Amino acid sequence: DLSGKLIIKAQLGEDIRRIPIHNEDITYDELVLMMQRVFRGKLLSNDEVTIKYKDEDGDLITIFDSSDLSFAIQCSRILKLTLFVNG
């Protein structure tokens, strides 16, 4: 049953990962930690990372904090994230 699940599709460069999320109350910090685990070796804990999501118009919107993240989650059951490393 995928109805209650949130799917995160995260892209870093050419690498795209699909991550099912069971807890929608994820904070921004938890998201960043999850991305560091998912992209281990490509995304380091001291990297400056910018996370953006695609909205319904196809625009890339920056996620700065947990309220941005929860808004993005409300918009779509499949959250398409693009990561930019400013390392």
Rank of each mutant, 00 (worst) to 15 (best):
S70A: 09
L33H: 08
F71H: 12
I63V: 05
I63S: 01
I73T: 04
S3Q: 09
S67N: 14
L43Y: 04
V85G: 04
Y28W: 03
I7F: 08
L6W: 07
S3D: 14
L2I: 14
I7C: 13
L6K: 06
E24Q: 08
D29W: 03
K5R: 06
E24P: 08
F64P: 03
D68Y: 02
L69Y: 01
I61Q: 14
D1S: 05
D57W: 04
Q36S: 08
K54W: 04
F84K: 08
K9N: 15
S76Q: 08
L79E: 10
N86Q: 13
D29C: 07
T27N: 10
K5Y: 04
L33D: 05
N23I: 05
I73M: 12
I73K: 08
L33P: 03
L83Y: 02
D68C: 06
K42A: 06
L6F: 10
A72C: 07
G87P: 11
T27I: 01
E24N: 10
L81R: 01
A72D: 01
T82V: 06
Q36W: 05
Q36R: 10
P20T: 14
G13S: 03
K54D: 06
D59V: 14
G58P: 02
G4T: 13
K5T: 11
F64D: 06
L12Y: 06
D68S: 04
Q74K: 11
L79A: 06
R40W: 06
L43T: 02
I19S: 00
K5G: 13
T82M: 13
I26Q: 01
C75Q: 13
T62Y: 02
V32I: 10
T82G: 03
L43H: 04
S66R: 02
G87K: 13
N23C: 06
T62G: 13
I16W: 05
T27C: 05
D29G: 13
L44S: 13
S45D: 11
G4D: 13
V32P: 01
D55V: 07
R77W: 03
L60K: 04
L44E: 12
G4W: 06
L81D: 00
A10D: 00
N23V: 09
F71R: 15
C75K: 15
Y28G: 01
K52E: 03
Y53G: 00
D1E: 06
G58F: 02
D65F: 02
I21A: 05
G4M: 09
